[in-house]
Design a protein around this nucleic acid. Structure first.
Lengths: 215, 215
DNA sequence: TAACGATACGGAACGCCGTTCCGGTTAGCA
DNA sequence: TGCTAACCGGAACGGCGTTCCGTATCGTTA
């Protein structure tokens, strides 16, 4: 549960006593090494491999990133935040909320399928990854909920789906993508979203509001 | 790849030299112990645990079941075969092929979500489980293809979905089911199947055949 | 019934893994 | 320059799957 927001970045305002130069250098090196290792062997690349790539001992990894999830979060934080940003932007620039939703989910899927083993790790019940899961949910679920709510209010989709549930389903569908050419995760995600659409005729039915779109 | 059909059952016609009595007894004991361990700790329960439950050494496990997949297959073979049987039955007894398809998928989902970690193992890229995956595909994909084909010919669903892809998608959606009450795998599978339906008006569009239904 | 060979058994041993811990090293300040 | 807190590397530990081999047992044959 803890340690998610532990930025370890450059400027953390309050009581961070500023790290030693070698520590900062190593942290940077580790992030690069980890990113490389993740690409080569997935997000559960052996700790020793990452340490070797960075030219440090395993102890150094654990000092900087107490859990593997912290390391993964640190490596992918930028991209997750970009995804968070994209939500409102898409909602403003798309023809309809449903359109924005599909585009945003597309981004999410892109992210997951290009990161070897990330989708697996996200759904893993492994205690190592609970905080990884938590980080993703904390950051992305609100954005997804926003899009979902807009599409539901516009009467484009069923209003009875939770952001968490959808994201988890999409994440699950991305598992193993890119390993078997016969399995196209994007297509199945499209199907899932199609299944979300309201039954066509009689649009704008159940929910009260019938406002077309905020934009 | 090998060792899937190695029934190890009672009567295997050809060249099986008949096993010793203690061996047969141990195999039986092991199957029970494994089933119990799978329920308690998932399909990747530690080998030593299973051995301990059965009161045998780990060597005995590996002699009877060279890979963990062989053990899993042996434990669940009955239920998989029941699922195979159910396909044609449902097709004959349901109102429509689509109805049969949804019912059959329901059975499949039931099976997966009640077996702790089975869905995960099925999609795992772990070399240990490739033959498990192969067994499921070999047995179930043809049945699924049959149902899918019937529904497509009846113009109820899009004809451009492969059995393998659907099964894998459904399997993926079942990952983690039963661990988080906020995640309802069945519901998402329903959504996926709903997304498969042809767009309502103008049914039986793309594909040639417009035969209503075989039954 | 006694003895023998094939078969099966148990668990020690090996290598890989994540994780912890501690003696040695170094950065940064006085 | 010298001191100390911070940091480093890797040995060490426990758990895992898997292999291997000396020993025990079965089933048959003399």
């Amino acid at each position: 549960m803890a340690g998610i927001g532990g930025g370890s970045g450059s400027r953390s305002g309050s009581s961070a006593p500023r790290k030693r130069a070698d520590a900062r250098r190593n942290e940077e090196t580790l992030l690069e090494a980890a990113a490389a290792a993740f690409v080569a062997a997935g997000v559960d690349a052996p700790v020793r491999d990452i340490a070797a790539r960075a030219g440090v001992g395993v102890g150094t990894i654990y000092r900087h990133f107490p859990t593997r999830a912290d390391l993964v979060v640190a490596v992918y934080r930028h991209q997750v935040e970009a995804c968070v940003q994209a939500g409102p932007d898409l909602l403003a620039s798309s023809d309809s909320p449903y359109d924005a939703l599909t585009r945003w989910i597309d981004l999410f899927v892109d992210f997951l399928v290009t990161k070897h083993g990330l989708a697996e790790a996200l759904q893993s019940d492994d205690a190592t990854f609970v905080s990884l899961h938590a980080y993703f949910v904390d950051r992305l679920a609100p954005v997804c909920a926003e899009l979902l709510g807009a599409a539901a209010r516009a009467g484009e989709i069923r209003p009875d789906i939770q952001a968490l549930e959808l994201m988890r389903g999409v994440g699950n569908l991305c598992i193993g993508a890119g390993k078997d050419p016969r399995y196209d995760a994007r297509r199945l995600v499209e199907l899932l979203l199609a299944g979300l659409r309201v039954t066509a005729r009689r649009a704008g039915g159940p929910a009260g509001g019938v406002e077309p779109a905020p934009a």
